[in-house]
């Protein structure tokens, strides 16, 4: 290994150690503030040790919030993925259609622009009133939050299609439909994936809110109910679990994108 590479490696190791120390410091300070100094009572801010204990406890116990951690995760995933898949299955084709067919664009875009500014959270009370508390309302809310970025990105992706590529297809005698499938959609794929990635993020985020207000199980519910039960340690467990699963989704989608979006293009 040459000098430059060696030096780069040393630097990396040095900063890696700094990062590890920083993290340890973070947890230590947290621990000290809670378990040692008791700056705030346990039920408001738990110590890291308590969080870990609560997590292990939750692996098997359903009390006090009605399910084990797996039960909550399963409930959350079910809702999130249902809403998300529906949102993507409707949103992407709609975005494509809006960008490809001029008439559809002129008719649907104004309607879409009406719905778009309303934040997803604002839909929650309406959905509860329409669907009651349960899978239906939650999935509907998540559908709305996933749907919007999918449409926007699919639309932008198709609109990105270079005219010259369409002309190539056209000169070879391709029909409109063939042009859509062999030129426009491949062009749009990177942005479509970006849309899928963003909407998974929004879906997961909205899930929190939806479950806090319209549910009796799931990670968001866990956060909500443990507030009234004064179990801050469980709240933190739920928060970290939400963060972890969110990260797994992002990493997973990035891997999928690298596989399907060929040519080294990113949206």
């Amino acid at each position: 290994m040459n000098e430059y590479a060696k030096q780069k490696r040393k630097e990396k190791i040095k900063f890696g150690i700094v990062s590890v120390i920083s993290l340890c410091l973070f947890f230590t300070i947290w621990y000290v503030c809670t378990a040692v100094l008791h700056l705030k009572p346990d039920y408001i801010l738990p110590s890291p040790v308590q969080v870990v204990e609560a997590f292990i406890d939750k692996l098997t116990r359903t009390a006090p919030d009605g399910a084990t951690i797996f039960g909550h995760i399963a409930a959350s995933l079910q809702v999130a993925l249902t809403g998300y898949l529906l949102g993507a299955l409707v949103g992407v084709p709609l975005g494509v259609a809006m960008a490809w067919f001029r008439r559809v664009d002129m008719f649907v875009t104004p309607l879409f622009d009406l719905i778009r500014p309303v934040p997803t959270i604002a839909w929650i009370p309406l959905m509860i009133l329409w669907f009651g508390i349960g899978l239906g309302a939650k999935a509907a809310i998540i559908f709305v939050s996933a749907f919007v970025p999918c449409v926007i990105n699919a639309y932008a992706g198709i609109k990105q299609t270079k005219p010259v590529h369409l002309w190539v297809a056209q000169t070879f005698g391709a029909s409109r439909k063939e042009m859509l499938f062999t030129v426009a959609i491949p062009t749009a794929l990177p942005l479509i994936f970006t849309g899928l990635r963003i909407s998974l993020g929004t879906a997961w985020m909205t899930l929190c809110a939806a479950e806090m207000l319209a549910s009796n199980k799931g990670l968001g519910y866990m956060i909500q109910v443990n507030r009234s039960l004064a179990r801050a340690d469980l709240i933190v467990v739920a928060m970290l679990t939400i963060g972890l699963i969110g990260t797994i989704f992002t990493v997973g989608l990035n891997a999928l994108e690298r596989k399907f979006v060929k040519g080294g293009r990113r949206g």
Partner: peptide, 29 residues
């Protein structure tokens, strides 16, 4: 690079937690 090494891990740990998930903790606090 120093700031990055010190703060990034903590940031990445807390970032994926959606703001709404913080509500309960913040209200308790």
């Amino acid at each position: 690079k120093w700031a990055e090494a010190i703060f990034k891990p903590i940031f990445e740990l807390l970032r994926p937690i959606p703001p709404i998930a913080w509500i309960s903790l913040v209200i308790l606090f």
